[in-house]
Amino acid sequence: MMCCNPVNKRDCPNNPESLAATTVFSVNEIEALYVLFKQIDRGAVEDGKINKVREKFKLKVFGPNKGGTLFADRVFDLFDTKHAQALGFEEFVRALSIFHPDAPIDDKIDFSFQLYDIKNQGFIEREELKQMMEAALAESDLNLKDDVIETIIDKTFEEADTKKDGKIDFEEWHALANAHPCLLKNMTLANLRTLKNITVTFPEFVFHSQVKD
């Protein structure tokens, strides 16, 4: 198979060996992720608008009708650890590493807490939780009456807020996540275990990975 738009190791702006040493990914997998990254990034670079990166990321992850959501912005912000409003490849790999099936569970708990702590206060308040619930329900096209939402939040705080101070801190979140592993379901992407099969999705990668694991 000929390739018109090759992506090879020399194109990779970061040192894949260094990234491999500090994440769960192999060098080959990081090269494969670079192909994926370029797919998201290419349109933004060509467009020349820095915010286009955010829009491309949101479009890819959340689809054309979910562009302005609370979670889309929150996930992007957690990937964009340098707060550059741009999706750097190294940050992209490090964040995705947390979603690997083999990543430590504590890393997943930490990341998910940051996701839900939308005001970066170090705890989750009742109002924040309600805001996230309403966003989640809207994104899922589910309608729940306000009193049902309030009841669900009451029950959640009754279980999670063991210190009874009206907020869920990291320690309480850790206990809740351990009691309900399903809360971390979205923190694991099975696709990351099969990155070596990336050629199924991105055939152009066949001839250009130069490292054998």
Binding site: F99, M132, M133, A136, L137, E139, S140, V148, I152, T156
Partner: peptide
């Protein structure tokens, strides 16, 4: 949904599907 806690409901939502990154 009433049987779920709030975080279960949120984590089930369509808005948290990073798997879409891998759709070609």
């Amino acid at each position: 949904p009433e049987a779920l806690n709030a975080f279960e409901l949120i984590s089930m939502s369509a808005g948290l599907n990073l798997g879409n990154l891998f759709d070609s």
